[in-house]
Amino acid sequence: MTDTPGPVLAEGRLQSDRPTERRLQSGDGRGAGGYRAGSTMPLRVELRRQLRRRRTQLSLGFLVLLPFILLAAFELGSDGEGNTSGGLVDLATTSGANFTIFTLFASAGFLLVVVVALFFGDTVASEASWSSLRYLLAAPVPRSRLLRQKAAVSALLSWLALVLLPAVATGVGVLFYGTGDALSPTGESTPFGTSLWRITLAAAYLFVHLSWVAALAMLLSVSTDAPLGAVGGAVLISILSQILDSITALGGLRDYLPTHYAFAWADLLATDVDWSEMAWGTFSAVTYAAAFGLLAWRRFATKDITS
């Protein structure tokens, strides 16, 4: 009111509402006119809020850029022809499908975990850090619905990331390395069409597997006001699980670690697929996701919001 001599509410404006007109009741006489709990926080609104953020654009952009960076690395480093000895890294240049598989392999352990943790861990905690969470809740957006809609949008963005990365990698790989058979390190080869389908299945499995990271990040997000704490905490726990998984002395106990089945999708590369590892991996991921998700829901629903 100092920068510009803004006009104050006009004298007669508010008074023109007659009291009876003003009170538009909803059907059951509870809320204000036009309010319905089921239509609060629509997905497109939350999507707009998230897509405009720089971190969303940067992380999706990086995933699009990654295959090109890998391509440049391979081209700069190689002698020219694709050699056929070694592990997945050396096989990456033999065909487009192999290039995509290698990209997935390289990013499944850490990069995609960070991306998913970012999308899920940042949502509620950043609202808390901006102090806008309390206004949303007082709108009122029911707490469960808020959590659900935010989780849905984060899931959508994560799904986008998991689709973009293999899609761009396949495009780049096919352009530069051709549409030959996909070769596995054990010597099995799958035709190009089948291998594309297998890559799709691998991405779907990764999506299900990373749901445990998502749920954990969500739990941390509702527990803390610092978005970095939520994202970093989820990533740290994932790293801890990977470290414990590499200790062979734990034996069969390692099956209970959430990251134990992170690379079970590699079974899809064989000629005939062994589904048991992936089934167990899905079960493990679903169980952890359900546990963390329910905890996050309960915590958010009963918590005193002080942010």
């Binding site: 509870r30 204000a32 309390r134 009122p140 957006v141 029911p142």
Partner: peptide, 14 residues
Amino acid sequence: PGDPVLSRLGAFVE
């Protein structure tokens, strides 16, 4: 928390 009657309330707190 989340009760519909809160829609008749407008708040500015803290």
